[in-house]
């Protein structure tokens, strides 16, 4: 590093010239070369992940992405969390009700009433709060293992599959914490329902 000198420094015009060229060069490097190069590498060596972790059914049809939740209206299926955008994944988001917003209480009360109507055997104080509240993305693909278990009596009654068998299905699709520590145990609703559908088809 040299001494700073006012006298022999470059002029303002030449600084502008360098800034202009730097702007163009860095748009090319950071905005074009870097994203295209990493995309190329990722597509070459990890195409499944790079293309959105798509899930196929037994016949090989793509039925969704393992990372993106779906709407399950049919009560025979396990249901996911509340989504103010009905799992329409061309966008994402929620209504962002603040904790003191009366709309939050109204919406949750409606979910509770719907729960009571569809699941007369399971009292609402056994239902985890996450199942009846809106996720952040509106696309949460997971529910907690308890949220799956409380749905078993309803699904058993509607499908005739025994609660034990459904319990095993939930256990088989329960993922633990990452590395045994990070995050929370969870069940992927799409994959669980895919297995349930296969069981129903038998």
């Amino acid at each position: 590093m040299n001494q700073a000198s006012n006298a022999s420094g470059p002029s303002g015009i030449s600084t502008l010239w360098i800034a202009l060229r730097a702007g163009i060069v860095f748009i090319l490097i950071c905005g074009i070369v870097y994203p295209l190069a990493t995309t190329g590498i990722a597509q070459a060596i990890m195409p499944h992940q790079a293309n959105g972790s798509l899930v196929k059914d037994a016949e090989g049809h793509v039925v969704g992405s393992a990372l993106i939740g779906q709407n399950f209206a049919d009560p025979k299926y396990f249901q996911g969390r509340v989504s103010s955008i009905s799992y329409q994944a061309e966008a994402s988001g929620s209504n962002n009700y603040g904790p003191s917003n009366p709309e939050l209480l109204n919406r949750t009360q409606a979910s509770i009433d719907a729960w009571k109507a569809a699941n007369p055997d399971v009292p609402v104080d056994r239902v985890p709060i996450s199942l009846l509240t809106n996720s952040a993305s509106g696309l949460d693909p997971h529910i907690s293992p308890e949220s799956a278990q409380v749905q078993i009596p309803r699904i058993s009654k509607l499908t005739g599959i025994s609660p034990e068998q459904l319990g095993q299905l939930v256990d088989a699709h329960t993922a633990g914490r990452d590395l045994g520590v990070f995050g929370e145990p969870r069940v992927n609703v799409l994959e669980l329902n895919l297995a349930l559908r296969a069981l129903l088809a038998k």
Binding site: L105, V124, V127, T133, S135, D140, S144, G183, R186
Partner: peptide, 17 residues
């Protein structure tokens, strides 16, 4: 409202986190 709230405030959060 009477749900099992032991998870904490899950409105606006994701289950995996």
């Amino acid at each position: 409202l009477g749900m099992d709230a032991s998870q904490g405030s899950m409105e606006g959060k994701e289950v995996r986190f």
